[in-house]
Design a protein around this nucleic acid. Structure first.
Lengths: 186, 186
DNA sequence: CCACATGTTAGTACCAAGTACTAAATCAGT
DNA sequence: ACTGATTTAGTACTTGGTACTAACATGTGG
């Protein structure tokens, strides 16, 4: 007997944590036992079959990850009057702060403001051209940032958007975004 | 005929984007056609079978997501002379661009620059205070952004960092970051 | 009105990666 | 040598398909 049952099951569990895409067949080959043995092991350990594992992984980050990073807008837009004003909310969570001192990394506040600035402008193509920003005070884990946007100037192909971000009644961030816009082509 | 072929295929595609876990059987039921029709549709549209879709999703964020967002530094820092200069590289991928026109969202370029500005300053606590930035030209999917930082001024508790980001030899982003720093406490 | 094209359905054989179950073989230790 | 645990073999069945063939339906142009 190459390995005791206990040992094999322990290794099996570890292997599957590291490589969840292994089939029973492959595992049987690796441990030099029959496929049935592997299946009995999985039964005893309560480990679901390959397809179940894969599906579980896919489900887990279907409505997790989807909205984590690739959001079109960072933060939740709560009010929006195109070419006029808008409001967006963002709660500062673990993933937004420096592990060290739990203060939000600046680019998240910027991302919220930038997203809102872009969202508030009504055009086919909207891109930020320039921005001047100020981080008034550090924002900490758990605080809710409310960004308020107001369109302040509109020229032929540029729109200026002023943004102020609040925690409660306190301004924590402010910025002036100069946004380029165009219709359709190019 | 309930729906034209084109219509059905269009809806099929949209349905699967929203609910990738649908089986052919379920789709056939929903559209009131045979399972074979659905399969022909998938063939024509180049949509893989359920298991393929699920597996793809699971794989994508098995060694993808883990390091996607919670990076301390956005981009890969390749050179770093503390309180002097630094270089960071960021390849623009799917998750960085607008789905529409494949142009990188501004806050990613900002995040790269901001991370680098903070990384280059040698202190216990480093926070961005103000920044003035300019998106010189749009950056597209697949382009590699190289951000170059240079410390230009140091006062008692502030450091000024100038950043230029290049794609090949072309400047695509530039910014001046005024960074607050302090030792140890609060 | 016939013919041919396009679209749809039916049906078969086959596959991967299993479950569920039965039965036989092997081993370990007393 | 016998007993109980462990391992292996083998069969039937399942899901959600692929790949392929053949028939049927519905037009649409000539």
């Amino acid at each position: 007997m190459r390995l005791s049952k206990r040992e094999r099951q322990k290794k099996l569990k570890l292997s599957l944590e590291a490589e969840p895409f292994l089939t029973d067949e492959e595992m049987a080959r690796r441990f030099g036992v029959s496929i049935q043995t592997i299946r009995l092991d999985r039964m005893e350990l309560g480990i679901p079959e390959l397809r179940g594992r894969i599906k579980h992984m896919a489900e887990k980050n279907f409505d997790g990850v989807r909205s984590l990073y690739p959001e079109e807008v960072i933060g939740q837009v709560t009010e929006l009057k195109l070419d006029h004003s808008g409001v967006s909310e963002l709660e500062i969570r673990e993933e937004h702060v420096f592990a060290r001192h739990r203060v939000a990394r600046g680019h998240h506040l910027f991302a919220q403001a930038n997203s809102l600035a872009v969202a508030v402008v009504d055009a086919e193509v909207v891109l930020t051209a320039t921005a001047s920003i100020r981080f008034v005070r550090p924002v900490r884990l758990g605080e809710k940032c409310v960004a308020v946007a107001r369109v302040t100037k509109v020229t032929s192909n540029r729109t200026q958007v002023d943004i102020q971000t609040f925690v409660e009644d306190e301004v924590v961030f402010q910025g002036v975004f100069d946004v380029y816009r165009s219709k359709e082509d190019q």
